[in-house]
Design a protein around this nucleic acid. Structure first.
Lengths: 235, 235
DNA sequence: TATTGTATAATGGTATACCATAAATAAATC
DNA sequence: GATTTATTTATGGTATACCATTATACAATA
């Protein structure tokens, strides 16, 4: 048994991404940055020209993005950039409220002291990123904050599940961050601070409650923004 | 606006599965029925011979099963049937406890009377399936019960998320159902009855609590079964 | 002019060929 | 005989060709 452990300890893992992975990343970024618009038709052969890879890689990349919910496939008709409707956003927030409050509770019970410090550091970076002139640093800092929380929660399945929602969540975060004024941002900050403080004092029920309330508050704001968004697109 | 609604009402949706989907289903069944053993190496060209389809279809089917967690891909080395370790099973149950209790609450708030009746009918079919000599009818009836619950919960995102866990959940259900005696089964039945009764009286907190407790009880039993399972494989 | 039928083009679905990497086997060396 | 190196085979990754379905354009008819 010890022999197998030693083999595992020095195993070299190939980590350079292959074409499929690079293509997936490029297409994902193109969607998240709105280069491809919501509801836009994605033509495989056209994407081959734009990416410079074969149809096989494009197809496999798109299938992966489909499982992330970033594109929708209609049989025999092709793929479309997924939209996040107000209804779907609400459902995502409902799932997040449930899972993220559970993750907050798990984090408090399982995180090392080092991970607690990492959460606080991630929150500090988040505070700084709010002052930037564009929203992407803020979205990234928020993403990193949750990465620390989910890692410290010690449940890889929950992490994987939330990862399938991640792209849509980041889209919603970018949308709402762009629409929020400084008063809303200051309040957001205070709410995150409540989560971090509760975690630092290892208060699991309070952490879980604050995580849930944070998501529920985000959901209400997003609903408002999306409603205005859909009103605009009708005009 | 009325014109568009009428078009949607008579839209014909093509529903016959293509080769990729049929291949995915065949391979999924082969894994769930233990035709392919846990940790078994899956060779694409061999699967082509067994399924009679080209490598393209096999690759795309396997990618889909990878996103369901049924197979694991090692870069440049191929695919293996995923195993559900005791640790991973525990994590799956944690996620389920959180999401299924939320779904129970949503079901009570949103389900039509017809959906309530459908839940009761699904439970009745479940009771009958326990008496069968093999476990697969029971696993299928349980799957159908949750399908009714999740549909009535009215959150498609939660449904999609739990669907990514579904194959592993069904694997764990088959494993534990095989290991359970008639006393445990009777107790399982009583606990499901509690869920259905709480839902029928539209008691959301009680339904949520019973859903959570049902999963937590399943988790404990599965942990025991998997421990014995792993002890056996060492021998 | 409006509608229907047919032909053509575009694009999704699938099969096969080729290239790249890993694993197994054979040959050479110590 | 044991170890190292070279060669061959197996299999993953990618590209391209071909088939099937859908969409669009054009011609014929009412």
């Amino acid at each position: 048994m010890t022999n197998l452990t030693a083999n595992d300890a020095i195993r070299v893992v190939k980590s350079s991404p292959n074409l499929r992975e690079l293509t997936t990343e490029a297409l994902r970024n193109a969607i998240l940055s709105m280069h491809f618009k919501p509801k836009q038709r994605l033509i495989e052969r056209s994407l081959c020209e734009q990416t410079g890879v074969s149809r096989t890689c494009v197809r496999e990349a798109l299938q992966h993005l489909e499982s992330e919910g970033l594109v929708k496939r209609v049989q025999n008709k092709g793929l479309y950039v997924a939209t996040v409707s107000a209804g779907e956003a609400w459902q995502i927030y409902e799932v997040r409220a449930s899972l993220e409050s559970a993750a907050g509770r798990m984090f408090v019970k399982r995180a090392s002291d080092k991970e607690l410090k990492a959460l606080e550091a991630a929150f500090n970076r988040l505070e700084k990123s709010v002052k930037k002139s564009t929203v992407m640093p803020y979205v990234q800092a928020l993403d990193e904050f949750y990465e620390v929380l989910l890692t410290g929660a010690g449940n890889d399945v929950a992490k994987a599940v939330l990862r399938t929602l991640r792209a849509r969540m980041n889209y919603l975060r970018a949308l709402t961050a762009q629409a929020s004024d400084s008063e809303y941002k200051a309040e957001t900050n205070a709410r995150m601070r409540e989560i971090v403080d509760a975690a630092l004092r290892r208060d699991a029920p309070a952490t879980a409650r604050h995580c849930r309330e944070f998501v529920e508050r985000s959901a209400k704001f997003a609903a408002k923004v999306l409603r205005e968004h859909e009103d605009e697109s009708i005009t």
